[in-house]
Simulated assay, not measured.
Amino acid sequence: MEKVVVSVFVSVVLGLVLLLLGLVLGVSVFGGREKSSPFECGFDPVGSSRVPFSLRFFLLAVIFVVFDVEIVLLFPAVMGIGGDWMWLGGYFVLVFFLVVLFLGVVHEWREGSLEWES
């Protein structure tokens, strides 16, 4: 029981330290036209809203969201690797999940979806 309490305490302290570090380092002193603009996607906010939208930008955003969600799904497995509660089948499921994630990245890479400047 003590190991769990220590793990939770360390996780909370580490999260707070990273949060404070991000807040301190994230303060930007430099401002500009791009930062004060309501859009930071490269489009000029003045003009028609019926401009052709870049499908590559949308695809890259969707890929980011998918892999971001999958990292969140990996978090409990990573926390349980050193613990006694993770059974042998859990390790196989974790390895299978990582293989599927890796194959997805390889597929997107070979398809050229991760290339922004092409």
Rank of each mutant, 00 (worst) to 15 (best):
S7M: 14
S7R: 15
S7Y: 13
V8N: 10
V8M: 13
V8C: 11
F9M: 14
V10T: 13
V12W: 12
V12E: 11
V13F: 06
V13E: 03
V13W: 05
V13C: 05
G15E: 02
G15V: 04
G15Y: 06
G15H: 06
V17F: 07
V17D: 03
L18W: 07
L20I: 04
L21N: 04
G22P: 01
V24W: 08
G26C: 05
G26F: 04
S28W: 04
V29D: 15
F30R: 15
G32I: 00
R33D: 10
K35Q: 12
S36N: 15
S36T: 15
P38R: 14
F39S: 11
F39E: 10
G42T: 03
G42P: 01
F43I: 04
D44T: 06
P45D: 02
V46H: 05
V46Y: 03
S48T: 15
S49Q: 06
V51Y: 04
P52H: 13
F53Q: 12
F53A: 11
S54P: 05
S54T: 06
R56N: 09
F58K: 06
L59E: 00
L59Q: 01
L60W: 08
A61V: 04
V62A: 08
V62E: 01
F64Q: 10
F64E: 09
V65R: 00
V65L: 08
D68Y: 03
E70R: 08
L74A: 09
L74E: 03
F75A: 11
A77Q: 10
A77Y: 12
V78W: 04
M79L: 15
G83P: 00
G83C: 08
G83S: 14
D84A: 10
M86I: 15
G89D: 07
Y91H: 15
F96C: 14
F97S: 01
F97P: 00
V100S: 11
L101A: 05
V106E: 00
H107Q: 14
W109T: 10
E111G: 02
E111C: 02
E115M: 03
W116M: 08
E117H: 10
S118N: 10
S118T: 07
